[in-house]
Structure formats: C-alpha cells, structure tokens
Design a protein around this nucleic acid. Structure first.
Lengths: 192, 192
DNA sequence: CGATTTTTTGAATCATATCAACGTACGTGG
DNA sequence: CCACGTACGTTGATATGATTCAAAAAATCG
C-alpha cells in the first residue's frame, strides 16, 4: 500500500528494513473521489500528500474568483500548502482531486518526528525540496523569458504526461494565460 | 569573518563551539569588486556563496541578448546556480556583483562533506531551501495573479531594502517588465 | 440521448512592448 | 574638482499581442 512512496525514498537514500517499517508506522492512507478537496483555503494545512494514484491540482483564487493553478500532482509527486504546513498559518491554496486518487498522507507532527529521528528521511526531504526549488526556478525563468507559444511547447515537452491528463483550460491556468489564448496558440502551432 | 554566516545557521539550529569550528574549516572568503562576475553562464557552478556584505544579482540572458534577473542577493542571502551546483552541469545563469561585496564561499565537495558529517548543517540546509521554495512559489503566484502595478507595490512592500539598493531597470527585469513600463507605473502610483 | 462542460472562433478593447528622443545623474580621468 | 562621456530614467507615438465577451461547435458525462 505504501510501496510507491517507500520506493521513492529508497531511490534517493537506501533504507534498511527497520527504517522502512518505522516510516510506515507514521503513514496513513486516504482515498479521494474526483472533485473532492484535499485542502481548502483557510484550513489548517496539517497534511502533506504523496500521490500513489490519481491526479490533483493546487490553486489559488483571486478577488474576482479567477482560478490560478500553481501546481499539478500525479503519481509519485508530493503536494501540500508548504507554507501553511510548516508555519501553521491558514492555507492560502486549495488542493483538489481531478481524478479518483489514492494518497499517502503525513501529518505535521509525524513529519517533524521523522525528520528528528530518521536522518535518511531528512536527507530525502532535503533532496526532494531542492529538486522542487530548481524546477520552480526554471519555470519562473521560462515565464519571464519565453513567448507564450514557446512556453506551451516547453511544457508539453517537459510534461507530456500532465498534458494528456489535465483539461486544456487547467493547463492554460498553469501557464498563466486564458483558455481562449491557449486554443489560438495550439491552432497556430498545428498550422505549421 | 564568518560570523554573519555562522550566526545565521545558529538561529535555526543551535551550534556547539566544536560544530562552529568544524564548519569554519570548510569555508573560504572572497571579495568581489562591483561588476565582477561570481559565475558566468557555461562555467562549472562549483560554488555556493553566502553574502556577508554587498549585493549581487543572478540572471539569464536570452537569444536576443535580453537580461532576465531571477534573484537578488544582499547581506544574509545565499546565491548559486543550484542546478549546476548539484548536478555538475554547466551553469545557465550569470551571477555578478552590483556593489563591492564580501562572500563566504563553499565549494561543492565541502558542501557534500558537511551535509554528510554535520547533521545540523543538513537541517539548516533543509530549512533554508524550504523557505526559498515557499518564497518562490509566492512570487510565481503573484506573477500570474496580480496586475503589474500590484506586483510592483507588493515588491516594494516585501523588499524595501532591495528596492533602495538596485537600479530601477534591474527591478523591472526582476519583475518581468520593461524599464519604460516600470517608469510609467511609478508615475501612475505617485499621481494618486 | 439530453444536459453540461469544454473548446473554438470572431470582433472589439486594453495593456504592455517597442522605438526613439530627451533630460538628468553619475563616475571617471584629467 | 570640474568636464566630459556614458548610463539611467522619463516621456511620447505607435505597434503588437493577449484579454474580454459572446456565441457556436464539439466533447464528455450521467
């Protein structure tokens, strides 16, 4: 049940059987139906989710009710409102399921305990967040550097799996443009 | 000479004298004159810099020669091309000094050794990068959510110290807009 | 199959970029 | 310390690209 998650850790820091079991003892499992929330703005973001199966999105909602997707998550990815998770402040993002999903859930307290008592878990966490940071910097750079058309191309190339799984208007939101604009960009590309 | 850096670590994870000394033994010190490069695109990004004094910028250059600032760094901040630093791939960013600066420099190998042998250094690193990740996510969100005017206001409010220290065209670059546009935005704001 | 959501398309509008000129500040060498 | 040259900031006119609003077409779901 927790294998994908444990294997993911194991890839980065080799675990003994004992460590595997110890980590397992902190984990819980959760199923989410399509459209269900994992987190809502204003909640206490007490949990961190590792996706075993399914697909989720993390987004903010602006004053006019516009949705802005900051992250997608599919199998093997981790999601949470990290700011809320670490500070205890109210969540400023929403997270919900785009497909029926299965999650490995870690609560704040368990996370702290694992970080404090399982050095390899801390190492895993550090590597994980470092990778996420680098990816985000790249994304930021592509937003400020590239034309919309190049941005879209880069996205489909970098994440063909996301591109297939999420509806087009969500991808538009993730890329920071209007659905109508993305539609036109796609036509321009296909006409070449 | 390394006090600011060691105190910064100490704030997050309390260090014994022994640990302080051990960390010190890995550090080197470097002065940079205004306009000098710390890193150039294509270099091996072997080093990570903690700014003791001065101000630097990290930026990429696009095909048309346009400069895009991804990060500023002043006293107490850390800079590097993290992707290159961790993977050994060639740097894709440039980093240079905007003022005469003094840096605490850590090379890749020292970093690895400290991570492996000083648990508190790893903890510090994890906390540090987590904070950087959260800040960047917020920045990304503000880019896709806010109007340019709001973005500029948010920036001046969040980083008044950066705002004072860097020339306006660099701030424009950081915010992802043209110098001429920033000038107009400032006028609009001041006319209110 | 019908109902709802998503995507496409068109036309008008708006915001920002671009290009160019001017004024000002800045630092650098004489 | 002044004068010159270069870099920086401002402003105007114009061009460009994305948004907005609305409606129709297509796809998806129950």
């Amino acid at each position: 049940m927790y294998d994908l998650f444990l294997n993911k850790i194991n890839e980065k820091v080799h675990l003994t059987n004992e460590e595997r079991e110890k980590i397992k003892s902190y984990l819980t499992f959760k199923k989410l139906r399509k459209n269900q929330y994992f987190l809502q703005e204003g909640d206490d973001a007490k949990y961190l989710a590792f996706v075993e199966k399914g697909a989720l999105r993390q987004y903010s909602v602006d004053d006019e009710g516009g949705v802005h997707i900051v992250q997608f998550a599919i199998e093997g990815w981790t999601v949470s409102d990290l700011y809320g998770f670490f500070t205890g402040e109210k969540a400023s993002y929403n997270i919900d399921a785009i497909e029926d999903s299965e999650l490995v859930v870690i609560d704040r307290q368990s996370n702290e305990e694992m970080l404090a008592t399982i050095p390899k878990y801390e190492t895993y966490t550090r590597l994980q967040i470092t990778g996420a940071y680098i990816a985000m910097q790249k994304r930021l750079n592509s937003i400020t550097t590239l034309s919309l058309e190049e941005r879209y191309k880069e996205f489909t190339k970098a994440y063909p799996n996301l591109h297939e799984r999420f509806p087009q208007h969500m991808i538009a939101s993730y890329l920071g443009l209007q659905p109508a604009t993305l539609s036109r960009i796609r036509r321009r590309i296909s006409e070449k």
